[in-house]
């Protein structure tokens, strides 16, 4: 099953490589991994999307906790949470396609953020599956380029990951 794991770690050089190294050394999946500093400059927050059986996820959490730089780990799937990802898609926009692309973008609440002679760049946020659905709705031949940030996640209500 897919899990979203959030963690706080000391904002030290090489911290990212410790996490990435752990996943590759132990053969765990990484679907996506995002990292950035938090409002507390000494901490980085990471969101890892991974998948595996319950036993594997339990080991992943334990192994992450074992890293000396890791301060806190939370499996967001243990409770209610929100997942958001940002995607930029450059699509062909010539002739009839110009209206068509605008219409699909609107349906998915995307925003056209760059307009050129033959193309639009659409910005879209949402859960990973919403972004997937958007790409599926497009004819493959109109997609010129895509870039996704990977998911960020946060617990709902008073589920808070903080030191």
């Amino acid at each position: 099953m897919k899990h979203i794991i959030s963690l706080l770690m000391e904002n030290e050089a090489g911290a990212l490589s410790r996490v990435a190294g752990l996943f590759s050394a132990r053969g765990y999946n990484i679907e996506s991994l995002t990292v950035a500093p938090t409002e507390d400059a000494t901490l980085s927050r990471m969101t890892i999307v991974t998948s595996g059986s319950d036993d594997v996820i339990e080991q992943i959490i334990k192994q992450l906790n074992k890293l000396v730089d890791v301060v806190k780990v939370l499996d967001l799937n243990d409770g209610r949470h929100i997942e958001r990802e940002l995607m930029l898609v450059k699509v062909k926009a010539t002739g009839a396609l110009r209206d068509e692309m605008k219409r699909i973008s609107d349906i998915f609440r995307g925003r056209i953020i760059d307009v050129a002679d033959g193309s639009y760049t659409i910005e879209l946020t949402g859960s990973g599956s919403k972004l997937d659905a958007f790409l599926e709705a497009l004819d493959k031949t109109v997609i010129l380029e895509t870039v996704r940030t990977g998911a960020s996640g946060i617990g709902r209500g008073d589920r808070i990951l903080k030191v």
Binding site: S17, A25, V68
Partner: peptide, 14 residues
Amino acid sequence: MVGVTRPCVKHNFL
């Protein structure tokens, strides 16, 4: 050295 030993140390520092 920090990169080379990362998978076989409890922790390392530069």
